[in-house]
Simulated scan of single mutants.
Amino acid sequence: MDHYRPKSAIIGIDGPGYWWLAYVPSNYRLACGFCNSGGSQTGGQRGRRTKSNHFPLFDESTRATDEHCDYEKELRVLLDPADFRDAHLLGFDLNGHVHRRSDAPRSDVETSRALCRADETIRILDLNRELLVEDRKTKMGEINKLVPLLMSPLSKQVAQEIIEGKIGLRSDWSAAALEALRGHPQVAEDLVSPSHQGQAGPTVPAPKRAVDLTDLMLLISAGSLKAGFTLTATHDGDQVEATVLDDGRISCRSRIWSTPTSAARAVTGQEDIDGWAFWTIRVNGIAVFLAELRDEYRHQSLPANHESSQDA
Rank of each mutant, 00 (worst) to 15 (best):
I143N: 03
L154N: 12
G141P: 05
V158T: 15
W173Y: 13
E164F: 08
A118P: 05
I162L: 15
L178P: 03
V158S: 15
H196M: 03
T121G: 01
R136I: 01
N144L: 12
V158E: 15
M151L: 15
K137R: 12
S193I: 08
R170K: 13
L127H: 00
G168N: 14
S112L: 12
D126P: 01
K139H: 07
V158Q: 15
I124M: 09
D172Q: 11
R129S: 00
L115S: 07
R129M: 00
N144G: 14
S112G: 02
S152P: 00
D190M: 15
R113Y: 11
A118T: 11
Q157A: 14
K145L: 14
E120D: 02
A114G: 00
R136M: 05
Q197F: 00
R136H: 10
E161M: 12
L115W: 06
Q157G: 05
E130F: 10
G201V: 03
A188N: 00
R117G: 07
G198Q: 05
R182H: 03
V192T: 13
E179F: 08
L169Y: 04
P185A: 12
G201Y: 06
A176W: 03
S174N: 13
L125S: 01
S171Y: 06
I122P: 01
M140K: 11
S155N: 09
S174F: 12
A118V: 10
E189P: 03
L181S: 02
D126K: 02
L115C: 05
K156G: 04
E161Y: 10
Q157M: 12
E179I: 10
A180T: 05
D172K: 12
E179C: 13
P202Y: 10
Q160M: 14
P202E: 14
E161H: 11
S193H: 06
Q197L: 10
V187F: 07
S155W: 07
E189K: 14
E120M: 07
G168C: 13
D119P: 00
L178A: 15
A177Y: 00
M151I: 13
H184C: 12
L127W: 02
E130T: 12
E164Y: 08
L131F: 06
L146S: 12
P202G: 09
A175H: 01
R182N: 06
E189L: 12
G198D: 03
E130Q: 11
P185D: 06
R170D: 08
T203H: 10
L191G: 05
E142Q: 13
I163D: 03
G183T: 09
R182M: 09
S171C: 09
S174Y: 11
V187Y: 10
E164Q: 14
L125E: 02
I124Q: 07
A188R: 05
